[in-house]
């Protein structure tokens, strides 16, 4: 008994307007001619031009991208290992501590994670820079990856894995030929999650970055503290556009994949 009453329509409209209007305003005013960000003075793309010429932003973007690619890749490997151990590993010494350490970073306030990692890096005398940000980001995002991957590992049919082992696969071959292809979509979305978490992180990066490495969020934060600026609006628009395209493409791809799977199953049932 689904019925879209006027109440539902109104609440959906208001809810989505609330979610999207602030971002729309940001996008519209990134094309504003005037430096005053709240007064419309005609269409212009000059702030995008200024942005491209701003070397500090470009450097920061490059640092951020390198950190995100490195940390999300290492986090995906470690997180998948952790998920496999948690779901298939059976009992081992210190399992409770291990599962605690996987879930704790998900609820730990960022200020505490950042502070504690910084104090560690100082205690062991590691110079702060790109490496320390990568280490920090890998640590918290591997936990997100492991949650995403383990939910997939729990739900799939173990007998396929066992069949591979019965047919003479080594455990590693069984993982590579059977398990990995099945959990691959979850591993991919784990990587994507880790990647965006790293791109987005301000607090942990601020603690763990040294003067030599400034990431884009640190740069944005220090300039928006002084107020709204049209250049930041332009930068935000670019970032929103990349995410929107990415999410829409990913959802269309998964829709197609589901449709294809349904077709194949139907075809298999007919033969």
């Amino acid at each position: 008994m689904r019925r879209l009453t006027w109440f539902n329509t109104v609440s959906l409209t208001i809810g989505f307007a609330f979610l999207y209007i602030p971002m729309l305003i940001l996008i519209i005013f990134s094309f504003n001619e005037s430096k005053l960000v709240t007064v419309w003075a005609g269409f212009s793309t000059k702030w995008y031009g200024e942005l491209i010429r701003n070397e500090a932003f470009l450097d920061a973007a490059w640092v951020t991208l390198r950190v995100a690619v490195l940390s999300s890749t290492v986090a995906t490997v470690l997180g998948t290992m952790a998920a496999y151990v948690m779901v298939r590993g059976g009992r081992f010494f210190g399992r409770t501590l291990f599962s605690g350490m996987i879930y704790a970073p998900l609820v730990m306030p960022e200020v505490i994670t950042g502070l504690s990692l910084l104090l560690l890096f100082i205690a062991i005398g590691l110079d702060r820079g790109i490496i320390t940000i990568v280490l920090a980001h890998t640590t918290f995002s591997m936990c997100y990856v492991s949650v995403v991957v383990s939910s997939r590992l729990v739900s799939f049919d173990r007998s396929v894995e066992e069949a591979a082992l019965d047919l003479g696969c080594t455990p590693f071959q069984a993982f590579r030929l059977v398990t990995l292809p099945i959990i691959l979509p979850a591993v991919a979305s784990g990587w994507l999650l880790a990647f965006t978490l790293s791109l987005d992180d301000l607090v942990i990066a601020s603690f763990t970055a040294g003067p030599s490495a400034t990431t884009l969020p640190i740069k944005i934060f220090s300039s928006v503290r002084l107020g709204v600026s049209p250049e930041i609006n332009a930068l935000s628009t670019i970032m929103i556009a990349i995410v929107a395209v990415g999410v829409i493409v990913a959802s269309l791809m998964s829709k197609n994949a589901i449709a294809r799977q349904a077709r194949e199953e139907k075809a298999a049932a007919q033969t």
């Binding site: 989505f16 979610l19 999207y20 602030p22 971002m23 305003i25 940001l26 005013f29 960000v37 709240t38 965006t196 791109l199 987005d200 301000l202 969020p217 944005i220 934060f221 928006v224 107020g227 709204v228 930041i232 609006n233 935000s236 970032m239 929103i240 995410v243 929107a244 990415g246 999410v247 829409i248 959802s251």
Partner: peptide
């Protein structure tokens, strides 16, 4: 998708958007 999309968008930018409003 419309609910999830903001989640993928930078947190900092979404907070910043309100400064101008």
């Amino acid at each position: 998708m419309l609910v999830i999309l903001p989640f993928w968008t930078s947190f900092l930018i979404r907070v910043y958007a309100w400064m101008g409003i």
